[in-house]
């Protein structure tokens, strides 16, 4: 697939105003700003926007989460939680980058991995393991 439109090459985009129900799979990269319930599995990278509401288990190669995820997150390489991320579920990744202000409630597993927590200016970040 080599889509050359507004959304970038080969990217599936679930925008605001759209809800996915069921076991969503993708062969490429996925950008989610809408709602998903069920599961999300992508062979590429997944970006979850600030407005996204994910009530699903998530698996991908890399992921950046800025919205709300209720479900287990299993990432092959790098997981980035931005300051607006709210994750309720177990997380597994090689590398996890957490910004101040993000919320993570769940078990963190890092097989041979690295955890990086950005130095918070205001101590808003919380990890409950």
């Amino acid at each position: 697939m080599s889509f050359k439109g507004k959304g970038g090459q080969g990217e599936t985009i679930i925008a605001e105003g759209v809800k996915v129900e069921g076991n969503f799979t993708s062969d490429g990269n996925v950008l989610i700003d809408g709602a998903v319930s069920g599961s999300v599995a992508a062979s590429g990278d997944v970006t979850i926007g600030e407005r996204a509401m994910i009530d699903a288990d998530l698996s991908a190669n890399n992921a950046i989460i800025s919205g709300e995820v209720k479900g287990n997150v299993r990432i092959g390489e790098r997981l980035e939680l931005t300051s607006s991320a709210r994750v309720k579920g177990d997380v597994e990744a090689q590398t996890i980058l957490m910004a101040p202000g993000c919320r993570l409630n769940g078990k963190v597993t890092m097989p041979d991995g690295v955890l990086a927590i950005e130095t918070p200016k205001h101590n808003k970040g919380s990890i409950v393991a």
Binding site: I14, G17, V18, K19, V20, E21, G22, N23, F24, T25, G34, A35, G38
Partner: peptide
């Protein structure tokens, strides 16, 4: 509707 795997539902007109 993608076979029986999942539905992409438009929550408003488009």
């Amino acid at each position: 509707r993608y076979e029986k795997q999942y539905d992409v539902i438009m929550e408003r007109k488009g």
